[in-house]
């Protein structure tokens, strides 16, 4: 069997795909930003000296890490209106699901970075009278941050790809636009391949940029 590739429908509708890409990036950017905040809060909670904070934070982290993201999307979009009467737009539901879920993963990255700071640093901070919060802010987090960058990038790329699940909530991101185009043009092979190339281009360029940043940080650290 000989398949004849025809990319004309893709070029004719490229604007639609670009619009989808922009929406994907919007959802990603928003969710990464909010996810980092949630992650930091969860990590601080998990590492807090009191159980009142560490147990709930640990529970949230483990729950979200060990359940499929598609289910979270459905909860926020379909479940929330049923249970509370609050209905979210597809964007809001997707952003909520993504940020909390990636927040749980980010929290583990933060925690890993924090506990990797040598014991002597914690002791030196305590020995001059620092409290837990001061110690975190002034001594631990600035050192942990550099070590967290590579795994945070990894998680963020993962999140960008997971935004495609928002298609199931009819949010007009790249994969949703592609689904619509595929049914209109009967050219799913060409359209989805183009989508893959678009994702690849964006994420690959981003990773090159990040590598440059890491390189500069490493040079600065070696000063």
């Amino acid at each position: 069997m000989q398949y004849v590739w025809d990319f004309r429908p893709v070029w004719l509708n490229f604007g639609v795909l670009l619009e989808g890409l922009v929406n994907t990036l919007k959802l990603s950017g928003f969710s990464i930003g909010l996810g980092l905040v949630i992650g930091l809060v969860l990590a601080m909670g998990r590492l807090a000296p009191t159980r009142f904070l560490s147990i709930p934070a640990t529970a949230i982290i483990e729950f979200y890490r060990n359940t499929p993201p598609l289910v979270h999307f459905f909860w926020y979009f379909y479940g929330l209106p049923i249970l509370t009467g609050i209905s979210l737009t597809p964007f809001a539901a997707a952003a909520a699901a993504l940020s909390v879920q990636s927040g749980a993963f980010f929290a583990e990255v933060f925690r890993g970075g924090i506990v990797s700071v040598e014991r002597g640093q914690w002791e030196a901070g305590r020995a001059i009278g620092m409290g837990h919060a001061q110690l975190m802010r002034r001594v631990i987090l600035p050192q942990a941050f550099r070590r967290m960058i590579p795994p945070l990038m990894e998680r963020s790329f993962e999140l960008v790809k997971t935004t495609s699940l928002a298609a199931t909530l009819t949010y007009g991101e790249l994969v949703y636009k592609a689904m619509v185009l595929a049914t209109q043009t009967y050219r799913p092979m060409e359209i989805y391949s183009t989508v893959a190339v678009m994702f690849f281009t964006v994420l690959f360029l981003a990773s090159l940029g990040m590598r440059a940043v890491e390189h500069r940080l490493a040079r600065r650290a070696a000063r």
Binding site: G120, Q121, A127, I128, G129
Partner: peptide, 18 residues
């Protein structure tokens, strides 16, 4: 603890500078 440690300073084997 904070008051105690501002009154009693400590120097470590491994220096532990920031």
């Amino acid at each position: 603890l904070r008051r105690l440690r501002t009154r009693v300073g400590m120097i470590f084997q491994q220096f532990n500078l920031f």
